[in-house]
Each structure stands twice: as C-alpha cells, then as structure tokens.
C-alpha cells in the first residue's frame, strides 16, 4: 500500500464516519421522541437547559484528552466496517476482535473526561461507565462468537460473505437478540443511559462546551452507528441483498437496525447500574453461553455455510 492510498482510505473512513454520525444525530431524537422518551441521553442534540455546571477547574491533561480518545476509538473502529466486498477501510484478519478492542477506547475517553472535569457529577460518569463496561463486555463477546463460529473467520469481510445465502439472524435469533441488548449497552442508548442520566446533569455533556462538546457528540453518535453497522455485518448479512447496490444495502440495514434498537429500548424504563450488572451476569451471560452451544450444535448438524 502506498502512502497516497493510505491517505485516501483514511480520509474516506473519516468522511463516512462524520456523515454517518451526523445522520444518526439527526435521526435519533426523532425516533426516540416518537416512542415517547423524554430523557434523551446521548441522543440529545442540545441540552434542554443549555450547558450546566461547566468544569471550573479541570485537570489540564485528562480533561481535553477524554473526547479525543473517544473519537479516536470510534474512528479506529470504523476502519473495519465494510460497505461492500472491496469498499472497506482495511480488511484485517482479526477484524472483529480489533473492533471489540478499539471501541473500548470510548469508555476510556468517558472515564478521562468525566474524572478530569473535576466536578462531582462528571466524576460519577467514570464509575458508571466502568460498571457498564463490566456488565456488557462478556455477553457482547459471546454475541460476537456465535457469528464468528459460523463464519469461521474473524475478518468482517469474510463474515459478511459467509451470509450470502442465509443471514445468521435466521439461524441464531438468540444471538441476535443478545446483540441487540448488549449493543444498546455498549452504545449507551436507552434503557442503558446511566452515564448520561439527568440526575448527574447528563454526565460529560453537562460539563463540556465548544470543540469538546462537538467531539463528544461525534463519538457518541458514531458509537451507535458503528454498533448498528457491526450488527448488520454479524447478523444481517452486511452488504448482501438483491437489486440495490452493495453500499446502499449496508446503509439501509444499519439504519434499520439502529431504529430497531432505539425503538425497542424506548419500551423500557432506564436501568440503574446495579440492575444492569444483575441483568448481564444473571441473564445475558448464560443466554450467551447457551447460544454458543446451540451454534456449535448447528455447525455439527451442517447448518451455515
């Protein structure tokens, strides 16, 4: 790969991410409002009462680092999302694993920004984000493993190609349901909005302004976009579909999955951190293990590609 090509691909990924995030940002409040959600969480375009409690005495290193790290995580994650068999930032052999890892940087960013703001409410974000990470990380991994086992590869391209005939959602409805729940947790969308709750003045949103607020919005919109895009790669066959061109199918599926997640999430009341942990470890993890067993059985029976 030459230098020029690297540059081209980087710019391409960046532009796609910014466009997608903007779309998400405009779309999300409408979906949520139509579902009757009043507490908007990270979906909010602007604050109800404008910025509140800006950090008066922030940590000079950690506070600005927060949004940058979060955006970097989203940006790195976007690299492996395919819009078509050849239309991808970079096809990595361990793409899905890489994706899981770099999305963790969003949590790191939230922790840095929350603690660094040096106000009580924002510091609370740190605890809540870590607790949420602890609750989603294992079942989310299990939800990925179902698709990985069936495709026999960690590459996003290979996983999407394996679903040319039949989408994995048909074979593994349990895994797909698990992904919907844990994906919402990973994206901080209702009902899992603890780190952005109204009670702590919307977390990092309430304590930042200017370029930092912009970057927070970009990363929080981007993380939902990426979770939905990865979901459509893992379970909805990626770009596969009749008639329409590949990228269009991918975009449609991503948007549809996003709307589905938001709409479903809006049906439930927000869960507290402790409830999230209980849900994750008492329900989702066993379900994920059961799904892995089921998929193993299906593969032995000869289902899948």
């Amino acid at each position: 790969m030459t230098g020029g090509e690297i540059l081209l691909r980087s710019v391409g990924v960046l532009v796609a991410l910014v466009l997608g995030a903007t779309l998400t940002w405009r779309l999300e409040p409408r979906v949520l409002e139509s579902a009757g959600v009043t507490e908007l969480g990270p979906a909010a375009g602007t604050h109800p009462q404008g910025p509140i409690g800006l950090a008066p005495n922030p940590d000079v290193w950690l506070y600005p680092a927060g949004p940058i790290v979060a955006v970097l995580g989203v940006l790195f994650g976007a690299v492996v999302i395919p819009l078509g068999p050849d239309l991808v930032g970079q096809d990595l052999g361990i793409g899905v694993f890489y994706f899981i890892v770099v999305i963790d940087f969003v949590v790191l960013g939230l922790s840095l920004g929350g603690w660094g703001a040096n106000v009580r409410n924002a510091a609370e974000v740190y605890y809540r984000a870590v607790a949420q990470l602890v609750s989603y990380v294992v079942p989310l991994g299990l939800a990925y493993i179902g698709a990985i086992m069936m495709a026999g590869s960690l590459s996003t391209i290979a996983i999407a190609q394996a679903q040319e005939g039949l989408w994995f959602v048909v074979l593994q409805p349990l895994g797909f349901a698990l992904y919907l729940v844990t994906g919402a947790m990973q994206a901080y969308r209702p009902p899992f909005v603890e780190p952005f709750s109204r009670h702590i003045e919307h977390g990092v949103y309430g304590s930042s302004a200017g370029w930092q607020a912009l970057l927070w919005r970009l990363s929080m919109s981007g993380v939902l976009l990426l979770v939905a895009a990865m979901g459509s790669v893992l379970y909805l066959g990626g770009w596969n579909g009749p008639l329409l061109p590949d990228p269009l199918w991918m975009i449609l599926k991503t948007l549809a999955l996003m709307v589905l997640m938001l709409w479903l999430g809006a049906r439930f009341r927000p869960l507290s951190t402790a409830e999230m942990l209980a849900l994750s470890w008492k329900v989702l993890t066993p379900v994920g293990l059961a799904n892995v067993l089921l998929v193993g059985g299906l593969i032995l029976l000869g289902a899948g590609p």
Binding site: I100, V101, D104, F105, V107, L108, S111, V130, L133, V134, V137
Partner: peptide, 8 residues
C-alpha cells in the same frame, strides 16, 4: 483489551 477494562 485485558488492560483497558482491568486498569479502569
């Protein structure tokens, strides 16, 4: 992966 979660 091990250490972001672990360290936090």
């Amino acid at each position: 992966m091990m250490y972001i979660g672990g360290m936090l």
